[in-house]
Structure formats: structure tokens, C-alpha cells
Nucleic acid binder design. Structure first.
Lengths: 214, 214
DNA sequence: TGCAAATGTGAGGATTACTCATGTTTGTAA
DNA sequence: TTACAAACATGAGTAATCCTCACATTTGCA
């Protein structure tokens, strides 16, 4: 009924480095246990609801030890995220390494998407961390409903334009096109204006190609 | 140096309704002031860093009055978000209302994207609320860097396949295609499995069409 | 005018991130 | 082996914040 917890009231945005790097075998193992505990708790409850005391308890260490290696709560989440990106980048690089022609790209990319999809499905931690408006399920649902409503307007147009097309396919396309637009926007406003404009223009081209395709 | 604040440790995900709807003129005006104050503070510091005491102070009401109309912190953010989606949906519906043919769609959609883009640029509150991994700037930057790295692998392949193409355009395309993929994944895992699979398949088709275009 | 319902208040309860003084273990050099 | 500094471990305590609640005031209306 209350709610404190969280992440950081300072507007810093920096990730403090581990207060101390574990140099002995013993502490390295303990840090692993802390990360594993955090991973489980994030999967169960989300990173926001994860409590530091619980992480410590589950890892079998004291709260003080936790803070010996992680300067704050965000640092734990960050460490898990960084580990994940490192792994996934290696996987992607490998998949695209030997692509030589268009057909090769088609195959490699298709496999890559499948792998990535399975990875997303299997990693609750990443689901939590990367999910937009992550901390708040209600907001996420509002966002999804909003997207569906907006895609709905597009779908109505498409149905008028192509009454014989498969309605489900139309819906999927419109929904995806719209979602991608929101992704492009979010991205565009977080890079510099010039790149943002380019991205939006590229999105327009891409979206229209798909919307008007056959 | 500390950090409490936040949003909600309960795994509920429900948005409690206003504890009480403002029925008198006086209270309706005060609720408006509360929302306006919250809007400013979110724009300045982000929704996570926004403190309820500060909202109350800025609105010129007591903390108790705030909780009279908003059951918790998230409810304020939610109210602002809902207001925004209502407005933007009306705007989108209007833009697409009279589309009659493909050329009309092309024009209306193009204008719509521009409007939406400007809206995103102008609304810091929505930027904060909709931005993925919103609460944590460091995570958002890690995510962006990860995306750039992954797009980099794609770019390398595209350069090999089409050495004469404009490098900047290639980069933009690859970056966008990759970002859209991540958006599709995030979306796919938050809907049911069947729809998720459809979305991923549609994304593959779309991405390949764009990557292999020309 | 009287009264119930709506509204307003802010000190204080409860929870939680994080600190720090203190104790323990480890590696290492004499 | 022993001494000792550095690394590691601990958990009660501090500070910050969300939210409650008992009580005061204002409003609409019969």
C-alpha cells in the first residue's frame, strides 16, 4: 500500500563503476550469486519491484556486501544488461559473418530473427529491462491499447482500399507499421535532429511501401 | 546519494481510479493545477524523479489533497498519458478520415507522420513516459549503443552487397530496420504467442524487402 | 439556517535504498 | 611461521520518500 523502492532520484544518468572489483576467488563467486539472485527476482517481479534486501538474502550475503560491489540498485540491472548485450552481439556477428550475396542475407537474416525472437521469449530479465515504460504495467497496457486504436484507423483505410485482401494480414501489417513508427519516433527524438529527420523520412518511405504493396 | 522514490513495488499493474472524482468547481480547478504541476516536473526531471511533495507544493495544495484525487504516484502519470492518447487519437482519426485512394493514403500518412513527429518533439512529458527503459538514462544509452552495434553488422553486410549505394542511406536503413525488429520483438512477447509469431513473420518480410530493395 | 457530503490539511507511519564503523579473511613478504 | 596490510563481510542505523488518517473547513441544498 505504499511504495518506495525504485531506482534513482538524481538526474545523473551515470552508471557508477563497481565500488570495488572482486579480486579474490571468494568474492567473485559471491558477486555471481548476487547477479543470479537479482536475475531471478527481476524475472519474477520486475526490476523496479526488486528489493535490495531480498537480493542479498537470496544470494546469501549481507546487504553491505551487495553494496561493496554494486554502488546502487541500477548498477545490478546494468551489469545484467551489459552481459546480455555482449553475448547477443557475438551471436549476431557470427550469424552475419559469412553472408556473400542477397540469398545468403535472406537466409542468415531470417535465422537471426528467429534466434533473437527465441532469446527474447526465453529471457525474462531482458523482457523486463528492455520493455518500454517497463516499470509500470498499466502504462504499458495503455500504450498498447493506444497503438491498437491508432492502427485501427489505418486498418479501416486499408480495408477500404483493398477490400479483397486477407483481413488478418492487413491488421498485422497496419499494427506493425504503426508500432514501428512509434519506435522510429522514440529513436528520432533521442538522437540529434538531423539523424532524427533522416530516420523519420526513411520510416515514411518504408511504411508506405508496405502499406501500398499489392 | 540515496534514492527512494519510485513508482510501485506491488506487482499489481492496475490503475486505481481516482479515490474521488472532483465534483465541485473548486476541486476541479485544483486537480487541473496538480496535473499541470506534475507535467512541468516530469518534463524537468522525469516521472521517476518527480516527488509528490513537490507536485503538491507547486500546485499550491497540500499533500493530502493530492492523494484525495490520485490514489498514488502512478495515477498522475497515467492521467497525463491518457489525456494525451485521447487527443492524439482524435488527431489521427481526422487525418485518415477522408482517404479514398492510394495517392490519398500516401499524402495523408505522410502528413500524419510529420504531425506525430512534431508532437513527440514538443511534448517532454510524453517523451518521458513513452521512452523505453525510461527511468534509467544509462540503460537507455546502453540499449542505443547495442542497437548501433547490431545495426553495424548489418551495415557491413549491406556495404559488401551494394558497394555503390549511398553509405548514409544504407546506415539509416539498417539502423531503422534493426530498431524496428527490436520493437517487433518487444511487441511480440507482450501479446499472445500466435499474434507474436505473425508479427515476427511480418517483420521478417518487411525487413528483407527493405534490405534487399533496389 | 442547518446539516451532510465534499473537500482540505499536514504530522506521522511504514518502507526502502544506501552508509559506515567495526570485525574477519586472505595474500604475501620477512 | 608470523605479521600485517588490503580485501572482504556484516547489519544496525540514517535519510528520504510514499502514502494514511484523524480532524478541520467549505460547499451545496433542503
Amino acid at each position: 500500500m505504499e511504495g518506495r523502492s525504485a531506482v534513482s532520484p538524481q538526474p545523473d544518468g551515470q552508471v557508477a563503476s563497481p565500488r570495488r572489483a572482486p579480486s579474490q576467488q571468494r568474492s567473485r563467486e559471491r558477486v555471481e550469486r548476487m547477479l543470479a539472485a537479482a536475475s531471478v527476482l527481476i524475472a519474477e517481479q520486475g526490476s523496479d519491484a526488486m528489493r535490495m534486501g531480498e537480493v542479498a538474502e537470496r544470494a546469501g550475503v549481507s546487504i553491505g556486501s551487495l553494496y561493496q560491489f554494486f554502488p546502487d540498485k541500477r548498477a545490478i540491472v546494468w551489469a545484467l544488461a551489459e552481459r546480455h548485450t555482449t553475448e547477443s552481439q557475438a551471436c549476431i556477428a557470427a550469424a552475419l559473418k559469412d553472408v556473400g550475396d542477397a540469398e545468403g542475407l535472406r537466409q542468415a537474416f531470417s535465422e537471426l530473427v528467429d534466434i533473437y525472437y527465441r532469446l527474447f521469449l526465453a529471457e525474462p530479465v531482458m523482457r523486463d529491462i528492455w520493455s518500454g515504460t517497463q516499470a509500470d504495467k498499466a502504462l504499458r497496457e495503455l500504450e498498447l491499447a493506444d497503438s491498437r486504436a491508432n492502427a485501427g484507423f489505418l486498418i479501416a483505410v486499408l480495408r477500404r482500399l483493398r477490400p479483397d485482401a486477407d483481413p488478418v494480414a492487413l491488421e498485422t501489417t497496419a499494427f506493425l507499421v504503426w508500432q514501428m513508427g512509434e519506435a522510429a519516433m522514440r529513436l528520432a527524438i533521442s538522437v540529434d535532429r538531423e539523424e532524427g529527420d533522416r530516420l523519420v523520412a526513411a520510416y515514411k518511405r518504408m511504411a508506405l511501401r508496405e502499406l501500398l504493396a499489392e
